[in-house]
Amino acid sequence: MADTIIKTEELAFSYPAEEGQTPLAALNGVSLEIARGTFVAVLGHNGSGKSTLAKHMNAVLLPAGGTVWVDGMDTCDERCLLEVRRRVGMVFQNPDNQIVANVVEEDVAFGPENLGVPTEEIRRRVDAALKAVGMEEFVLQAPHHLSGGQKQRIAIAGVIAMEPACIVLDESTAMLDPSGRREVLDTVRRLNREKGITVVLITHHMDEAAMADRIIVMDGGRAVMDGAPREILTRMAELRAIGLDVPHTVELLYGLREDGFDVPVDALSVEECAGAIVAAL
């Protein structure tokens, strides 16, 4: 239990419906545990409930049924609200709509300021956070002059400055171009490895999920698959059935097997895939 950072039990939620309509259930009994220090990807198509799940992880939404614990604190307990939000930081989809200040350093300082951290300590945290995301040279820049990827790194720095145990990225790469996505993913991966920060990455990009330690696949408000990327991303038929893709490497290997090649299907990376094919030729 000590090394579980987020735990949900029979979590259920539905958004309020318009008059006369039955509310649509967004989550239908999700039970899962996220271990401290891991990198977990949550995959699913739009409307699968993945974003709703993410918003329960730091009490943006409160469960209609079931319970969510963050570091042992029930998110429904109002006394713990600030502490829950400090420990699980959230980065959203639209980079423009989560930056509060007109100067990078003041934006990064926003969280610690709200927490009442002393001034000298805020300075230290802001500098450390900007360094951790590789944006230290932008400290006095105006955020609207930055690229999408850079803005998201500022948002990540703003979360890091609260010294959280976990970062949840709620489709934070969806609006970025390939280089922006790479910037953000490299940043969170480094934070995960070097600082041991737990990362929960909500996405519908298979290649992003492939770099996680564990993948949870959501569909119809339930967690329908849960396991290592190698195990999940090779279940081609099942993933397709719920509107997701498989990496092209996996698709190729499936095809080659049908053609009589003796290849495994779980070679996800380009290098592994090429290696497997060379061995089978």
Binding site: P178, S179, D207, P247, H248, T249, L252, V270, E271, C273, A274, G275, I277, V278, L281
Partner: peptide
């Protein structure tokens, strides 16, 4: 020039590098 190439092309490039 900083662009991605399709994953399949990258596999083909890697295969070629390995002498296929």
């Amino acid at each position: 020039v900083g662009l991605n190439v399709p994953q399949v092309t990258r596999v083909a490039m890697e295969l070629r590098r390995r002498g296929v």
